[in-house]
Amino acid sequence: MIPITPQILFFLETMLFASVVFMHIAKKNSGVIFLYAAQSLIIAIALFYSSLKEASLLLVVAAVATFLVKVIIVPYFFSGLIKKHRLQFSVSTYLNTPMTLIVLALLTAFSYSHFFGPLTILAPDKENALSLAIAMVLISIFLIINRKGALSQMVGILSLENAIVSFAYVAGLETTAGLQVGILFDIFIWVVIASVFASMIYRHFGSLNVSVLKHLKEE
C-alpha cells in the first residue's frame, strides 16, 4: 500500500478546494450537485483507503456508508428536487463572479495568513493541506452567504461538513467508526428534513429563492 504522503494529501485537499470554488462559479444546480458528489467521492475514497490501511472492518463500513449517503443518496435526493420543481438554473448570487472570486481569494489568503500558522502543530508536515481545509471551511460558508438558492445553500452546508471532515482527516483526528456513522446519520436526517422543507418552501412561496423569505423581520 502506498503511504499517504503530505503531497498526496495536499493534492486531495486541492481537489476538494477546487470543487468548492467551482460550486461558486457553477450556474446550473445539477453542476453544483455533481461537484458535491465528486467532493464526497474523494473523501469516501480517502476514508476507504485509510480504513484498509488500518484494516478495521468497522471503518470500512463507515467509509462505505459515507459513500452511499453522500455520493449516492444525497445527490439523488437533490436531483429529485430539481426534477420535481424544474430548477435547472441556480438562482442568482449577491456578488457577480469576479467579485466572488476576489472574496474567495481574500478568504484563502486569510486562512494562509499567520493567524492560522500555529495550526501546523496538529500535523507539522501538512501545513498547506490544513490551510486549504480551513479555506474550504470559510469558502463553504461564503457559498451559503452568496447564493440565494435554497438548494445551493444546502449544498454549502454539506460542503462545510465535508471540509471539516477533510480537515480532521488531514490532521489525523478521525474518530471512531461508530461516531462517524452517528454523524453520517445526523447528516442524512438533516438532508431529508431540509429537502422536505425545501419542497414546502416551494409550495408556499413558489420559488426556492430564499430572498423571498421575508415575512419574519422586525417592523
Binding site: 452546508i157 480537515f167 483526528l173 428534513i193 414546502m200 419574519l216
Partner: peptide, 24 residues
Amino acid sequence: IEAAWKYLMINSVGLLLGFFGTFL
C-alpha cells in the same frame, strides 16, 4: 416554514463550526 428553515440553516452552520472546534 420560513422560521423553521432559518432555524435549520443557521443552526446547522453554527453547529458545524462548533463541530470543527470540537475536533480541535
